[in-house]
């Protein structure tokens, strides 16, 4: 592609990634969450891949990031076993990291709440982004 497309895609990279990150981080409050935000980030990387045709990113980098995301997901779920059962939300309702106690009734949404749900959203977002980029890169490389 010519220079204009390349420069504009580089400029548009950061808003798209920030927007995707916003969807991921606010997954427990607004519609969206891990999978949707990950798709947005993958679309940013797809933009990069289509604009720049030479091989600037290798495939196994995405595979590694995906692995990190997935292991993060499962490990946090495993930690819950020590408290109670698998996938137990051991961070909610403790006023520690993500565990502000929310009372019954309508409110405007607190980012600090939710327990392990935002962490899971993060992990799923990372994983989906890298997995979809892997797929698009494989299709391009054929």
């Amino acid at each position: 592609m010519n220079r204009v497309v390349k420069i504009i895609s580089l400029i548009m990279l950061s808003p798209i990634i920030i927007f995707g990150g916003y969807i991921i981080c606010h997954g427990h409050l607004t519609p969206g969450g891990g999978f949707q935000g990950g798709v947005v980030i993958a679309s940013a990387i797809a933009l990069l891949i289509i604009a720049f045709e030479d091989k600037i990113i290798k495939n196994h980098l995405f595979s590694l990031i995906e692995t990190i995301g997935l292991t993060f997901f499962i490990s946090i779920a495993f930690v819950g076993i020590f408290k109670n059962t698998f996938f137990y939300n051991f961070l909610s309702n403790t006023n520690y990291i993500l565990g502000k106690t929310i009372y019954f009734g309508a409110n405007s949404g607190y980012l600090n709440s939710g327990g392990i749900i935002p962490l899971m959203n993060l992990a799923v977002g990372v994983e989906v982004a890298s997995a979809l980029s892997f797929i698009i890169l494989s299709i391009k490389n054929k």
């Binding site: 196994h60 595979s63 590694l64 995906e66 692995t67 990190i68 997935l70 292991t71 499962i74 490990s75 779920a77 495993f78 076993i81 059962t85 698998f86």
Partner: peptide, 24 residues
């Protein structure tokens, strides 16, 4: 009683860790 979920998720964890371990 956690053994039910351990039987299912330990191979899941290994499956996810395998691309990392393959590098070594």
């Amino acid at each position: 009683r956690n053994f039910i979920i351990l039987v299912i998720t330990i191979p899941l964890l290994t499956a996810f860790l395998l691309p990392l371990l393959k590098i070594f």
